[in-house]
Amino acid sequence: MISDREKKTSVQTELTDPIKPYKKVYSKILFILGILIITLFCVMVLASSIGPVSIPFNHTIAIALDFFKFNTGVEYIQRDYIVITEIRLPRVIVGALVGAALGISGAIMQGLFRNPLVEPGYIGVSSGAAVGAVIALFFGWTQISKWFLPGAAFLGALLSILTILFIWQLSRKSSVSTLLLVGLGINLFLSAIISVFIASAPSEQELRSIVFWLQGGFEARTWHHVQLISPFILGAILIAAFFARELNMMLLGDEQAKSSGVNVRKTRYILLGLAALMTGIGVSVSGTIGFVGLVVPHVIRLLFGPDHRILLPASALGGAAFLVLADLVSRMVLHPVVLQVGVVCALVGAPIFLFLILKSRRGSI
């Protein structure tokens, strides 16, 4: 029989040793990430092919490769090329980037708070972005330039997280539970501000624009949006992946992490900043989208365990696939009526999350 002390030592070694776990789980990591990459690729091809104009899968792949200067020699009509490269592919890539940002941000937040029920929106980032976007729509700034909307949304997210961190510092309590409470308080305040703007919208057009944005969606997304968000999101994902070992140690508690050489305060600030950056950038071009950062990391954790060396990249890939698929469903399930992707995520994510909670409590997962 293995004693509880030996089990605890084994778990601590698996989570914190910098060399041995990589040798042990290297093939497992590659296998899991390989499956998720293939899944994401298939979902993106599916989403790019299906629509009012159906395009064969092999043509979709050939068009995408030709667009990125990989000549395939496959023949296709010019209409299909325009549909894929100018309409669907930018939308799908933006959806994948936003889904990856929300997925890995959720995994980071759940690791920092040691709570699988936490998501990036809980610290006020999404609400801050929503307030910025609502202000831009309310005052008609979007008519000046299409970039005012994502710019205002990102500025709102940035000001929100800075305010929350400032109040957290003033409280003189460094616990993550205090940060969560501050975030929830700011969330309620920002939601009230949004309600004021909605109630006082000068015309039906502004009201519809505000409500439409708050529900989240990828309509009319272009390559400019891809270029705008991809460097920040991909760079932040890469940086976050290097903190997997620190997050693993912090799962054991702050004191254990400090004794293992982790600068808990610095690591927490960096990871919170990365999560806020990715969420703010993503929400700035997509609108408010919930449940991705909550459900996806939770599912990945239940399937593959809490090791952040797998959890972080897997959550990014899983979030990307989930949101691209949700966007496809939003376009096609009630065609020609188009649902907002945020509505689809809520309709699908909420029941899945409740089911997983019930299964995990019964010990089935």
Rank of each mutant, 00 (worst) to 15 (best):
L188Y: 15
P336Q: 13
L46R: 07
H225E: 08
D80K: 06
V53H: 05
L328Y: 06
S360P: 08
Y26F: 14
V45M: 10
L158Y: 08
L323H: 04
F242D: 14
S364P: 01
F41Q: 00
L358E: 04
F138T: 02
L33Y: 06
V341S: 07
G106E: 11
I63L: 09
R114Q: 04
D17K: 00
T9A: 12
R172Y: 14
V296T: 11
R245M: 14
Y22R: 13
P297I: 00
Q215R: 09
R245V: 11
R172M: 03
S145V: 03
L97W: 04
K359S: 09
G216Y: 02
R301Q: 00
L40M: 10
A316L: 08
D80F: 08
L89S: 05
R268I: 10
A192T: 04
P231H: 06
I198M: 12
I93V: 09
G73L: 07
I300V: 13
G151D: 01
L65H: 05
F57G: 07
V176C: 01
F353I: 02
A350L: 12
S177L: 10
I164N: 06
L328E: 07
I84S: 02
A320L: 07
G287H: 13
R88S: 08
A199K: 14
G273Y: 04
L252E: 10
P52Q: 04
Q256L: 05
V226E: 09
Y26T: 03
A201D: 02
D4S: 13
V299S: 05
A320H: 14
C345K: 02
L294R: 06
L15Q: 01
V264A: 15
I161W: 05
R361A: 09
F139M: 07
S286E: 04
L238Q: 11
F355P: 02
I193K: 02
F41R: 01
S191H: 06
G99N: 03
H225M: 09
F218G: 02
L65E: 11
N58W: 15
G235F: 05
L36M: 15
R91Y: 04
Q12K: 15
G342E: 03
L207S: 02
I161Y: 04
R265T: 12
S48P: 02
P56Y: 12
L277E: 00
I357T: 03
V211M: 15
